[in-house]
Simulated assay, not measured.
Amino acid sequence: MTEQVQVHYLEIVTPQPEQLCEAYSQSLKVTFSAPIAELGGARTARLSSGGTVGIRAPMHQAEEPTTRPYYLVADIAKAVEEAKSAGAHIAVPPMEIPGRGKCAIVMFGVVQSGFWQI
């Protein structure tokens, strides 16, 4: 039996977060939250799939704009280890986000993605 892949959190890092939130609010008919500290100051909106999109500014000068899906997994340590075995660079090992679960970021070259365990 094949399990369904679910994007739990879609993170968009942009130097113009307010402009993008406004554009998405109008075109997608969603409402964004106030900035959420534990998500790097991201403003979030719920997706009809049950996931969340978060839009935020880079957290430091070296952080490049990106769109990063975080896939929902049952065992984040196992998912990160399997990605590493497949050649991924572990940019952020599993870390706790208070009240939200654990997340991690892996990179295959310039392609960034993440895992999220709730």
Rank of each mutant, 00 (worst) to 15 (best):
Q4I: 11
V5C: 04
Q6A: 11
Q6I: 08
V7T: 10
H8K: 13
Y9W: 13
L10C: 01
E11M: 09
P17G: 10
E18D: 06
Q19R: 14
L20F: 10
L20S: 00
A23S: 00
A23L: 12
V30R: 10
T31N: 07
T31I: 14
A34K: 08
I36N: 02
A37Y: 14
E38V: 12
G40I: 05
G40D: 02
G40R: 00
A42Q: 08
T44Y: 06
A45E: 10
L47H: 01
G50V: 06
G50S: 06
G50A: 10
G51R: 07
V53D: 02
V53R: 09
G54I: 03
I55Y: 05
R56V: 03
P58G: 07
Q61F: 13
Q61E: 14
E64F: 15
E64W: 14
T66W: 08
T67P: 09
R68I: 11
R68G: 08
Y70G: 07
Y70H: 06
Y70D: 05
L72K: 08
V73S: 03
A74C: 04
D75V: 00
I76A: 03
I76K: 06
A77L: 13
K78L: 03
A79H: 10
V80M: 05
E81R: 13
A83V: 04
K84N: 11
K84F: 12
G87Y: 14
G87M: 11
A88D: 05
A88I: 03
H89D: 12
P93Q: 13
M95N: 06
E96H: 12
A104W: 04
V106G: 11
V106S: 03
F108R: 03
G109Q: 03
V111L: 08
Q112C: 07
Q112V: 02
S113M: 00
W116R: 13
Q117C: 00
Q117E: 11
